[in-house]
Amino acid sequence: MPSKRIKRNQPHKRQESIDDEDIISDLPRNVIDCILGKMPLRDAIRTSVLSKKWRLNYLTIPQLVFDDQFCKELIDFAKKKKTRKFFNYQFNEIVTNSLMLHPGQIERFKVCIPKFSILGYPNVNKWMLYLSTKNIKKLTLEYKKNSVRHKLPPHFFSCLDLTYLKLRNFDFAPPPELKGFLYLEKLVFFGVHLANNCFESFLSSCPVLQKLHLRGCSGVCHFNIIGSKLKILCIKADDKFESISLENAPNLTKVTVALEKAVIGCLIWLSLGIVWLKSNYFV
């Protein structure tokens, strides 16, 4: 039903704001944080010289994103200065400082780590330590170089409030004492090597996991997924991957399995639930 609009006799309209009045600096703080979080970090940093009110605004952005674009701009800058070391130093410095100077909550942290010279290795473990004290919810850690896999820093396993996790080019070997990520809803692994026999038990320690994406992962041939919350499962081109067995997954609505080559004996066991197989489904 369309809504009706009733016109009343309008009182004299309030005068629009005077022409030279600042129209943004006094917006509610969470709105300013949200606006700053929606632009590349470089643009947000530039707002720090607008006026005294803006001086520290960019430091409290709840999302810290150091993505490919951030790297590209920094590399362009380093090229002008003709020093690669400078880039490494700056990258590390900017990420570390943004975390150390951050006074509030950090909701989301994303970093795409480019190729580094040995001299300027990034302080990933230190970042994780800070993030774990900030109750980080959404975390993306990516190493750009595909041929090398990196160890997860020990403090990573202290970030227990994660709801979203994406890792690229890591070795994933959770310590035996890890109780699991109790709030994790979405897990994305690209090029991650899964240490033997730990992935299944890790999955079962994520009780609210709804979405699982694995692409180009290795280390696991067979695994059982036992989870009543899982809704979406997507597995692509995983080495040596032979079978998945799903047990007690009544919420599963979408399964995509695409293997590089169909492996004989690849078996997908769907015991319960309505499953819609999207494409590239080899048996």
């Binding site: 030279d20 009045e21 600042d22 129209i23 943004i24 530039r46 707002t47 010289v49 006026s51 803006w54």
Partner: peptide, 12 residues
């Protein structure tokens, strides 16, 4: 430009 667009006056 940002100052002009949002009419922010610099006090630095």
């Amino acid at each position: 430009a940002v100052r002009k667009i949002f009419r922010i006056e610099s006090d630095f």
